[in-house]
């Protein structure tokens, strides 16, 4: 088990920043553990959801932002609807993921492929306006070094008309590209 030295890693602004960005009163968490009990992905987490909440309260920024859990969270929102303190825990997880990305932290372990998947997905949206499933999957396979992953599934889907070799681009493709650019700009200014 890893020892955490509170006096060395404390970042007192962290809870405020997470609360402000997520719009959630993280300080209200009283560690009942209901989020963890209901989390369907907890079995694969390195930090349990209630531990993430506690560590945000304690200002353990580095430890929280470098955990795999914030990436493995499936955004099922079960924690949020069950929280007796009405904290949107899933929104806090979203916020932590966004913060880790902004800091340029390399997602650890299984988080790596989640980030890769998300980037590929958004790349397709910016390029085509819609998700080009076949190209996005092929690109993901190449980037993860498993070119033939799900090849049989893909072939079956092609035969059944459930994969297309092209994508219907919206006419307003420029607009979508513009949205990505403007969001990037707006976030730089903050």
């Amino acid at each position: 088990m890893e020892t955490i030295r509170l006096n060395e890693s404390e970042d007192r602004d962290f809870i405020e920043r997470v609360s402000r960005e997520s719009g959630q009163a993280v300080e209200n968490c009283y560690q009942c553990g209901k989020c963890t009990a209901g989390c369907p992905v907890a079995f694969a987490y390195d930090l349990m959801p209630h531990q993430v909440m506690r560590m945000v309260q304690m200002g353990l920024k580095e430890e929280v932002l470098r955990c795999q859990s914030i990436w493995l969270c499936a955004s099922c929102v079960t924690c949020t609807v069950r929280c007796p303190r009405k904290i949107d825990v899933a929104m806090v997880m979203d916020t932590l993921r966004i913060m880790a990305r902004r800091k340029g932290m390399v997602p650890p372990g299984r988080g790596r492929n989640v980030a890769l998947f998300n980037n590929n997905f958004l790349g397709s949206i910016q390029k085509y306006g819609r998700l080009f499933e076949l190209a996005t999957m092929a690109m993901f396979n190449l980037k993860t070094g498993q070119p033939f992953r799900e090849a049989n599934t893909g072939l079956t889907m092609l035969r059944r008309g459930k994969l297309k070799l092209s994508v219907t681009k919206p006419r307003g493709l420029e607009e979508i590209n513009h949205i990505f650019e403007k969001v990037r700009q707006a976030e730089k200014e903050v």
């Binding site: 916020t95 949206i125 307003g172």
Partner: peptide, 17 residues
Amino acid sequence: DWSCCGATAGHSTSHLL
């Protein structure tokens, strides 16, 4: 002329997006 909603990749990456 609809376009993608951004799905989970979107809200995992940027609240504004």
